[in-house]
Design a protein around this nucleic acid. Structure first.
Lengths: 338, 338
DNA sequence: CTGAAAGCGCTAACAC
DNA sequence: GTGTTAGCGCTTTCAG
């Protein structure tokens, strides 16, 4: 391994000067700076973070804690895309991103212990409420946190504007003449579940549409098959008075619901219109192509990185504690006029 | 920050002994071990990796280099799931996983420089051929590599058995009586593209089916919309002699192809059967539910971790340089008898 | 503008 | 069994 000492020797200066050169101290004379860089280049020197971090206490390391449930976390394109954008933005600032595990060597450890072990300066959180206890101590520690999934008291959050998205979807259906609009909700333990359902209620109210409890299905989990189950249940419980449209809380269940609805002999959108939420990549390539609410995952990831780094570097924070990213309705072919 | 010295003082021993205790040296007396652990616990001490790595040269850090193209890399559920399983397995061994970026501080850097900068002991590669040059120098450096995407000379690889999967799909179609089987291929610059196409050819040959060049479409990129384009082209160029089945090289394009085929007035599977490859989570929830080849991403990720860690730790390696994970045909509703 | 020296937290001989 | 000591590669006063 080539060190600062090797460079110093060949460049005819002291290690201290080499260090200064690499840290862009203005005091280093131009000519010696050049010399040092030349030598470094020729030996293909790379500074050693571990040594650097040991003295400076700055690791340039950010952790991510994502749900490890199958079908969630990075396994799901929604979070994958957020993470992708997060880490790309973090890299621009010079931060590296690592997965926070629950192991230190062969021992189990808490997330917080792992953060301290690696000297993480901050973490990105994407854990649902079910795992809230595992991250409780990191939330109340001094590692900076930003969440892109759940909302925790006093914790910075970047998520899509679920209320806005819901309104866009429902207003559209309303415009097409729909008044009997069902809603298949995410588990109401989740922010997405509560907010989308809340906005649905608010919408009905604002339009003077009477709430029909038969038009509501709350799913038990986040999983595509929940859509089929919900569709069956819905069709069953309002056979005599079918909704003309369904607002599905997210695309995965919209796909399976459509499939089930069709297999029961109904046409989408002719008999029942369907709107989703998420705008996954595949949503545009189903039949019918899914009309859905787009979540701007690129912005969510980038903004989360910006925020976290502002926190880490104690920069003035202009954003609110809770940042909401606007949504957009993507109109395709799964809805039609009544 | 609480250090080994703080513990030593309170436990009434030397820092060296504390270090030994934490590294499970058998020479440490039981009673002093207990004492040390007690004190550590009460101060909630966590060892500092940076300091540790500085002396031991062991960072317990593994990097991942994934394509950053949209729709690829961790953004795609295929790689997301592989990465998820990889990092979980690595964690069990005590290794942490970080994303290798092309930045060091505010400067651009090569992947290799970044590996050295962080002292990465190995890397997981998931880059397509288009970016091969960016990782060339890490492949020929001394950092251990395992690839889960492309195949490089002399480099360990873990990927699904594409030939096997293709054969399973085609045998199934054959069994259903199909003889006119089209193939929409991935770009032939990719391993997936070449191998699946190669196996298709091999299959035709083994069954004595004459090769019909009109039944072949090579797509230009990995992207869902390629499926629609291919379907249009295919239908156009063999209007007079349509295939009864299509083997789509991966699920994303199978979805869009089906959608396009349907919108052109044909029924799937009644008029045209379709098989995919990947078995993405959503594949089971389309209409028709997609018959496809399952890639065992959990095993791929785990095996890649096992391999990489064996390499890192210079453990004897029983596996071949190139490990193939068996595939499985998942029969659903997108194929029928001719 | 440059260098000497101390020290970050830990490990690894080696002595006791 | 335990402690002393040197040193990993770098940064940072402080002198010059």
């Amino acid at each position: 391994m080539v060190t600062i000492y090797d460079i110093a020797k060949l460049a005819g200066c002291s290690p201290a000067t080499v260090s200064k050169a690499f840290n862009n101290y203005s005091s280093v004379k131009d000519s010696t700076y050049k010399k040092i860089m030349e030598v470094s280049e020729s030996l293909s020197y790379t500074p050693n973070t571990n040594a650097r971090a040991l003295t400076t206490k700055k690791t340039w390391l950010i952790g991510v804690i994502f749900s490890e449930d199958t079908g969630a976390g990075i396994t799901h394109p929604h979070f994958g895309e957020i993470l992708q954008n997060f880490k790309m933005r973090a890299a621009e600032y010079g931060y590296d991103v690592l997965f926070v595990s629950k192991h230190i060597g062969n021992k189990e450890a808490s997330y917080l212990e792992h953060c301290k072990y690696r000297g993480l300066e901050g973490v990105l959180l994407a854990m649902d409420r079910n795992h809230a206890d595992e991250i409780q101590n990191v939330l109340s520690s001094d590692v900076k946190c930003v969440s892109v999934e759940d909302i925790y008291p006093n914790t910075h959050t970047v998520i899509a504007d679920y209320r806005m998205g819901t309104m866009q979807a429902l207003e559209y259906l309303y415009l097409l003449g729909h008044r009997k609009i069902a809603h298949v909700a995410c588990p109401l333990t989740s922010v997405a579940g509560r907010e989308r359902y809340g906005a649905y209620l608010e919408f009905l109210n604002s339009k003077g549409i009477e709430f029909n409890p038969k038009y509501i299905i709350e799913t038990d989990a986040f999983a595509p098959e929940e859509g089929s189950k919900a569709a069956v249940k819905l069709l069953q419980q309002c056979w005599d008075d079918l909704p003309t449209a369904i607002f599905m809380a997210y695309d995965d269940i919209a796909f399976s619901a459509i499939s089930t609805i069709q297999s029961q002999g109904f046409r989408v959108p002719e008999d029942i219109s369907v709107v989703g939420f998420d705008n996954l990549k595949v949503s545009g390539y189903m039949s019918p192509a899914l009309t859905t609410v787009h979540q701007d995952r690129a912005t969510i990831g980038q903004k989360a990185a910006d925020k976290l780094i502002q926190l880490i570097e104690n920069k003035p924070m202009e954003d609110a504690l809770e940042v909401r990213i606007p949504t957009k309705l993507i109109v395709r072919n799964s809805c039609t006029r009544v």
